[in-house]
Structures are given as structure tokens and as C-alpha cells.
Write a protein that binds this DNA or RNA. Sequence first.
DNA 1: TAGTGGTCTAGACCACACT
DNA 2: GTGTGGTCTAGACCACTAT
Lengths: 258, 258
Amino acid sequence: MGTTQLESVQEPKYWHLKTVLSEALDSDFAVGEILPNERDLAARFGVARATLRQALEQLELEGRLQRRRGVGTTVAPPRVGVAVAAVQHDWADGGGTDEAWQPVECTTATAPASVAALLDIVADAPVHVVRRIRLTHGQSVAAELLYVPTSSVPELSAIDVPSGPARARSVLRELHRRGLDGQDRSVELGSARADDAKELDRLPGAPVLVVTTRYFAAPGTVAVSVATYRADTCRLTFGDSGALEISHDEQVETRQAS
Amino acid sequence: MGTTQLESVQEPKYWHLKTVLSEALDSDFAVGEILPNERDLAARFGVARATLRQALEQLELEGRLQRRRGVGTTVAPPRVGVAVAAVQHDWADGGGTDEAWQPVECTTATAPASVAALLDIVADAPVHVVRRIRLTHGQSVAAELLYVPTSSVPELSAIDVPSGPARARSVLRELHRRGLDGQDRSVELGSARADDAKELDRLPGAPVLVVTTRYFAAPGTVAVSVATYRADTCRLTFGDSGALEISHDEQVETRQAS
DNA sequence: TAGTGGTCTAGACCACACT
DNA sequence: GTGTGGTCTAGACCACTAT
């Protein structure tokens, strides 16, 4: 056995490429730096552009790279730690500066079947649909649809405001008045729908972490939230127990270049 | 404007294909059913195979399809809800039948830099590395590396058992004796390393949900776990507050076909 | 207008799982 | 062997961004 490995006989080219590029990113590039374009890189490594792209896609999936059409490929900063709250300070627009959920829109419609099932309501019961965007460091990291059965907020006068952010705030206020007994959360991988992708400044189909939350109050489920987080830039954090809430998220903020 | 939409003028083919296939899956296929092969499907839709594959990849990412080389493409069952415990019944091999963490191996080495940082130890301090596999419904859904500084389990006699599952259990037992003050968790998207991919019966690079947990006891961080869950088949669930632990995960078990 | 990444094609060969 | 999905090529054109 010499210095080169013999076990790597049939490792896919794109996989090997990914490894090589990853190491190059660690040693030779600073965050924010622009890489050579795909045609040059492919030529440099002696592969077809499609193969090179397969490696880049993996690295982008892992949050190492950021690619923008018409611009280029840049080295991505470390993922942002985004707190997914264990406690319900949630209805407000976010107490701190860094957890801001910004209401965008509010309509009334019938919930999709999957949501209706979680809400324990009949499929065609009317719900308020509140759209919110979550900003962190000035960047939008998540888009949410919050489904609130009209029966959950009976005090809300239907003719109050027809739609828009103002109505969204009305619904959230009424929801807040009801209090909260608990919640229930799940996380899974998904791909961004066209509307979410637009809000998140990504292309449709971009990988996202879908966080589905059920909110409980009094007799049953009072609301359901489906939030899609950018999977490339976000690391979801949970402060599960009453443990020491060490920074761990903020300490990564030391950016190395522009 | 006729019956066809004019807004869809420049929607990528693979995106449109994905939509069409998705609807076909809902209406015309049962879980477990085998789809026509890629060459046939591509011909049927009048696109190149690469384009068809782009659509299939998306659907696989969303957990709708399962593809296996040499076998074919099948309709995937709904994602399995996997509880990520909020409380620490964790060191045991899993109390219930369905949360089994199975120790596989245990070695002693120096932790990777990123883990050492989370453990608040110097980079070259020795740690026990316990490898565990999580099984659900007989399927392995997650592979974990648990890093335990040797200083966290001082009572463990080094000459007890050199390695293997037996030693893994020793470490876990000692860890359990120390108790637990709390934990701290984060979830992000990653791609499976070669060794994890093998345990999870997937190809290297397959999308995974990486759950990093810090365990706290007495003076500081006592262990760090890095668990990679199959993103295609898993939905991670969190029972955040003391709320009603409704099934919600088990009710999806109604499979429709073999 | 020039340069970037995104989409798409029509092939080819390979690794793997069946039979 | 035969058939499947996985990898790879060498092109082409398109959509977008910047200048």
C-alpha cells in the first residue's frame, strides 16, 4: 500500500470532486469569496460541466456554497442557528430583534386536507390563513402559513379588516388572548413551493426544512403552523429542557470575509 | 386564452413533470407499487431521461418515491414519525419496542475539532466514540456517533473490554449513572457520509437530517451525539411542552399495499 | 452586451439485483 | 444474462444579473 489509496478505485467522480473542493474551500477560500465559473472549474478538473455541477449541488446542500444565477458561486457563511421556540412567545412579532416573525397577509379559506386532519376539523371548515416571514440578520430564513380555524377566534369580527397584515395581526392578537396549553412539533425535509421559494429568495424546489407545529389550548387544537426554513442556510435549534442556554448559535457569527 | 394556462409558459419541464407525476401517484398508484422504468417514463413524456430523473429526484427528496439500483422505482409509504426524545430515557437501549438504539461499536480516539468545541475540551483529548443504530419497524432509520470524553466516565476501567458492543454498553451505563441535567439540540440538513450511508442502506450523499445533541451534567457538557436520520423516510417529532402526546405519528401506519 | 448559473438533450457505459 | 437505476459526456439554449 503506497501513499495513494487503492480502495478508492470506483468512487464516483463527482463524489471525489466534492471532497477535493470541500478541502479547497477550507484551506484556500474565505467566506464570501467567488469561485471560478462552472465551465472553468469543469475544465480545470477535466470533467463535464454536469459532473462538476453534481459536486457543487452537494456542497450547496450542505451549506458550503451559495449559487446565484447571473452572478456566480460564492463560499457560504456557516449556517445560522435559528431558535425554534419551545415556549410560546410566538404570537407576538418576536420579542427580541432576532426572532421577528413579520405578518404579511391574511385570508380566509378552507384548509388543505392534511392540515384539516391535524386541526381535527372537517375538511371544508373555514380557517384564517396567516402568512408570516421570519427574518434573521435582515435575511428572510423562513416562510410560514398559520392556519387558524375561525372557530378558534370567535371574537374576531369578520368585517374588521378584510385582509392584509392588519388582519393578520388581529388574528394573532385574538389567538394570544386564548393562551396556550402546549405544542407539538415535527421536522421533515421538503422542497420549496413556488410561493415560498419567492419569499425565501430561492428557486422553486430548493430544499427546505418543514416545521409543522400544532398549538393546543382549552378543548383541543387551536392552530396549526407550517413553516418552511431554508435548509441551505439554517440550523434549527431547540432548547429542549430547562438547561443552560449557552450561546452556541451566536458564537459562529465570526465571519471571515465580506 | 384557451383551456391551457398561459402563465405556465416558462415553467421548467422537470417541474411540470414532477407535478404531473405527483398527481398520478395520488390517484393511480398504491404504496409499494412499481413505476415503469426511467427510459419508458421519459419516452412516454417525451423528455430526455436526465430531465425525467430530475423530477424523480425531487419526488424522492419529498419522500414520495423510493429508488433502488437494479430493482426499480416504487411508491414510498408516508414518512415515519420518529420521536426525538425531549427527556432522557436515552441511554438505555430504548424502553419501548419502537425507540431502540442498538449499540454497534465503541472505540477510543480524539474527537473531531467541531465536536471538541461543543464538548468544551481540548482538541486532542481522548473520547469514547459509541456507534449506535436506531431501528423503527425493523428498519434502520438513523446512525449515531456518541462522543463521550473519557473524563466524563472516570469509573470506566480502560481494560474492561477493548471495543465492540459490550464496551459501548459499559460507557452508556456509566453515563447513565451520572444522571443528566439537560440537553440542547439542533437539526440541519446534511448528506450521508459513506459509513452512515452503509448503515442506513442508502448511497453516499443521500440527504439526511443531522441531529446534534449536547448532554449536560454537573459541571458541564458530558457528551455530544451526532445522529443522522434518513431524510427520505423520517419525520422527526418533538414533544416540546407537557402537552397531550397524541398519536399523530402512529396513525399514519395504515399502509395501502405491499 | 457579456458572463453567470439553470435547463435540456441524446447518447454511452457502469454497478447492482434479480433470475 | 437481462433489466434497473447511477454516472458521465459534450454539446446547446435559456433566464438572469451586472455593466
